[in-house]
């Protein structure tokens, strides 16, 4: 990755769609993501504890969802896009064995601040795990 790989504000087209990204949801990702975000709530790493809470299996924590949203946007925008907002609404939980597919599109552009807004969704077999918007400042 180099600076040249970062999207320029002037190259972004209105309504431009981002490439789809499918992320396999595994025990390793959920438990590893929880620990990497210092979230030791048992429902994120202990299947027995999760079942006692009424869930079929461990479920992804919000901070991991935020990390995956950042990855999805950054993969498209490049290394030097600066995030100014990452706003998500939570839906169906991510359980192991499922897959979450991100889709997104450019929904707003502000030339004065070189900011683009992307509206995105991450959908699993039960519906949207996450929907939201990300704001980026581009070179």
């Amino acid at each position: 990755m180099t600076l040249q790989n970062t999207k320029r504000f002037d190259d972004v087209r209105p309504g431009e769609t981002l490439p789809e990204l499918a992320i396999p949801i595994t025990v390793g990702l959920i438990a590893g993501g929880a620990i990497a975000t210092r979230d030791y709530f048992p429902g994120h790493h202990d299947a027995e504890a999760a079942r006692e809470l009424g869930s079929p299996h461990i479920f992804m924590n919000i901070l991991t969802t935020n990390g995956l949203v950042q990855r999805y946007i950054e993969d498209w925008a490049g290394p030097e896009a600066r995030f100014t907002a990452l706003k998500i609404k939570l839906g169906a939980p991510n359980y192991p064995g499922d897959s979450m597919t991100f889709n997104g599109a450019v929904t707003r552009q502000d030339a004065a601040t070189r900011t683009v807004e992307i509206t995105l969704s991450g959908k699993n077999s039960m519906g949207n795990h996450v929907t939201g918007t990300v704001a980026l400042v581009l070179p």
């Binding site: 990755m1 180099t2 600076l3 990702l29 993501g33 990497a36 990390g67 950042q70 990855r71 290394p79």
Partner: peptide, 25 residues
């Protein structure tokens, strides 16, 4: 680095000092 590893984030701005030093950041 560990957060990037699990999330699948490969942006060198977070982990590669040489790249980061040459960036706008």
């Amino acid at each position: 680095r560990q957060w990037c590893e699990i999330m699948g984030v490969d942006n060198p701005l977070y982990t590669d000092p040489a790249f980061a030093a040459n960036s706008a950041q």
